[in-house]
Design a protein around this nucleic acid. Structure first.
Lengths: 333, 333
DNA sequence: ATGAAAGCGCTAACAT
DNA sequence: ATGTTAGCGCTTTCAT
């Protein structure tokens, strides 16, 4: 009706409805009492003008934006979309929105994004990047807004965090491989930036002892494949692999196929995360399920409590679960 | 230094530096002339107070937020992260930020998000959802802010759009299968919401004619698997499959494995998108590469031109490319 | 080179 | 039940 014209303001509405801006504001909030016919007139005016209240003006006035910043290391990793969805679902329900900052694997970019979020005056920030968390460790608790950590924690700091029980996961994976008759076990780690990977590794070590052979897979598909080829020089089947995550495991699976080594007859493979794809690769991938969506939800709930003035500290640990599939389904056990 | 205290304001800085807020604003923008020693004092004050200018106040004053809204159908689809990254990279370079709205497959949520974006006064919105685009077709051009469509277009409307050449892709896929000796071809389509799928299908039809057998795979992993099982009731190997996207194709691959049909000896499979995973599944997936990252970049550039006042109309079509891998590597050709 | 002052669109006392 | 007004933190004329 008004074409590309800039949005109408509250005064435009007030004028058209023949009331003051205060009254318009009242019908907007729905809280205060307004006579029904007045309300009607105001609503008509709003509709006629295609009025949309300005969140920026409101934010300035209220000193609160109702947006939560979320920084992830790399949205390209299938781990994150689920996390993002969980957070979004919960945040949306709270009447807030998510401003996503994708670090894209660059520490520099993460920092820049953090600055952007802060300048935009997000009400809180959720950090899903162990790298960032550690680099900011010193400053994080003198932050102007509440911070929640996801998928990483900073022991000894009072920051609320939500993580999965990585160590138990490592243990489960190793025990599973052993029980399936893979007597030797190797570990393909994630990048050194990841705290997680050492926890998972620790879990494996809990089961098999210090002598664990480890090679780095960087947490990616190609790294997993490369690590496997590397491994092939020093290890002979049969053996079991615990990989830092499903991506790494799937990379390894591809390499094993090239090598002509039979999975699961000669080599067993366990991933971590349970991304959707893992059920569909060949052979389907045994993995440690982490509730990525749930982590997002819990993080968002934590934000809500923080914003409500509650003092929330400490780490929430979500349980993990082994999902046995074909990649460890050894013929004779 | 100031702990959780709310950020300092420009007046705090001005006071501490012994200047007016106007001067602080000048050093902030860097544009106007300020005496070096004054500038120094102001900068010191900023540092001491850990001052961060409020983007919300500035936005209100400037009537521009420097944020671009991006609506995607479902961030969980591996197609989008790349697109998002491309857009982000370019937008960040422009000094703007991306506010991501994830429709999560729900039309309702997409609408809500669109409202949120508009209330937050984003400077422009990029819509990567053919569903939303079509539903909003009527209203989209009387929008208060510029709109750019990605991965979908609205022929007959003056909206700028950037898409890949889906129809050529369909043609390439079909021709490739034929050349590899798969004489019969079937198509597994994406959801009916997707415009793309009909374009791709049209490309296949260009090559093989109207009689093309088509079954719906919904664009997802499980849909692809289900479609394949469905197909198995009516079609006997050998044949070639063109799938709506890689996800669908990988789902089909899993089903074929269960069925015990040999890929590529009996069945050839071609996907669409070239997601990272496709190189690593077994057998590796032949696919039509689309420049997802590039689409994001072009969309962002289009936004920039629009915001600079340029009149941009029409659709930018990005070329596609066939990537031949093992899933169509038929032994005897 | 710097300051004073108005105003962006909204909400919340405080009046009436 | 409704109006008046001040002010959120910034930028930008217009003076000086």
């Amino acid at each position: 009706m008004e074409g590309k014209s800039i949005s109408a303001t509250i005064s435009d509405v007030a004028e058209l409805a023949g009331v003051s801006t205060a009254t318009v504001s009242r019908v907007l909030s729905g809280a205060a009492s307004v006579r029904p016919d007045t309300q009607q007139r105001v609503e008509d005016a709003m509709a006629r003008l295609n009025y949309r209240p300005s969140a920026v003006a409101r934010s300035l006035r209220m000193q609160s934006t109702a947006v939560i910043g979320l920084i992830v290391t790399d949205i390209t990793n299938p781990f994150y979309p689920d996390l993002v969805r969980g957070m979004e679902d919960e945040i949306l329900q709270q009447g807030r929105s998510v401003l996503l900052g994708n670090g894209a694997g660059s520490a520099d970019r993460e920092q820049r994004y953090l600055d952007v979020l802060l300048e935009r005056r997000v009400d809180a920030v959720v950090v899903a990047s162990s790298g960032l968390a550690e680099r900011y460790a010193a400053r994080l608790d003198e932050f102007p807004v509440p911070v929640v950590l996801v998928n990483t924690d900073l022991p000894g700091r009072p920051l609320p965090a939500v993580i999965a029980d990585s160590r138990s996961g490592g243990r489960l994976a190793a025990e599973h491989l052993l029980s399936r008759g893979y007597t030797r076990i190797v570990y393909i780690s994630g990048g050194s930036e990841s705290k997680d990977t050492s926890q998972r590794q620790a879990g494996v070590v809990d089961v098999v002892g210090d002598a664990l052979t480890t090679v780095d897979g960087g947490g990616h598909l190609d790294g997993g494949a490369r690590a496997m080829h590397h491994l092939a020089e020093s290890v002979e089947p049969p053996f079991g692999i615990v990989a830092h995550n499903d991506l790494t495991a799937i990379g390894a699976l591809a390499a094993l196929h090239e090598l002509g080594w039979d999975v699961p007859a000669q080599v067993g493979v366990v991933g971590f995360d349970d991304i959707a794809m893992s059920r569909f690769v060949t052979p389907s991938l045994t993995t440690i399920f982490q509730d990525k969506y749930g982590m997002g939800v819990v993080a968002a709930q934590t934000v809500d409590r923080l914003l409500a003035g509650e003092k929330v500290e400490g780490t929430t640990v979500l349980p993990v679960e082994l999902i046995a599939r074909a990649s460890t389904d050894r013929p004779e056990t």
